[in-house]
Design a protein around this nucleic acid. Structure first.
Lengths: 126, 126
DNA sequence: CCTTGCCTTGACGCCGGTGTCAGGGCATAC
DNA sequence: GTATGCCCTGACACCGGCGTCAAGGCAAGG
């Protein structure tokens, strides 16, 4: 399978696949032409990568998951290294959630203050 | 007050204040030397700007708040334009929260799967 | 032979708030 | 005069996951 086909099957672009390769996530064989040659299993790997990226992992966090899949495991997240990354990311997400929750509360306070302010003005100018 | 003093009083840097000015948020007078001259009220404005940035607003969202403060209001968020921006940002934050919550749930599922997987392996190799 | 369409590598652009460096002016104190 | 320390403008760097363009090779069909 050439890069264009894998890209289409994975719902992404050749550029993206080359980017993953540049970061050590995939290592296709090369044809005599120099063309990248992927076997069917790589589709799963690419899907795993894209799922992790969509969940906010960085490319450099993803390597353990890929290695885990390649080692023959049924899922990329069952290996110790993956678990460590998962824990780290979970803590990070919890931090963001806390922060965003604070922001949300301040926004709501400001909105309700603004509404009170408008009502007060109406009472002054009846 | 020169830019260095205002920067220190606001807990930031001259570079940052020039950036705000570049984006139309502050408009200091100029001394004969060309030095920026700020009056004391600008400290409040800068504090408002920094509070909004810390809550995830972009510099271009912040102008209504500054204008509102300058118009003599007790707070930057009581004017209609500010309220519109607040609502937009609140919706955005709600979106992020939803997304992050989904991510968090997936992370926890994967972690618990990994633990189950390890336990299963222990049972197989007693 | 020429076109078409895939492939290759390399490199710049984006976004946004700020750090940082370059190169130069002004002010105050010695 | 000069040393110090502030000020000025302008411009590049950062981060990260790509998009996109450039310039060229290879394969297959007319």
């Amino acid at each position: 399978m050439l890069i264009g086909e894998l890209a289409e099957r994975a719902g992404t672009s050749p550029r993206t696949l080359r980017y993953y390769e540049e970061h050590g996530l995939i290592r296709p064989r090369r044809d005599a032409n120099g063309y990248r040659q992927y076997d069917d299993g790589e589709l799963r790997v690419v899907n795993e990568i894209r799922a992790l990226l969509a969940d906010g992992f960085g490319v450099d966090d993803i390597k353990p998951f890929v290695d885990c899949l390649r080692a023959g495991n049924t899922a990329g997240h069952v290996c110790p290294d993956s678990v460590a990354v998962l824990r780290r990311r979970l803590a990070e997400v919890d931090g963001y959630l806390e922060q965003l929750t604070g922001v949300r509360q301040r926004l709501r306070e400001q909105l309700s203050q603004a509404i009170e302010h408008r009502e007060a003005r109406c009472l002054l100018n009846p």
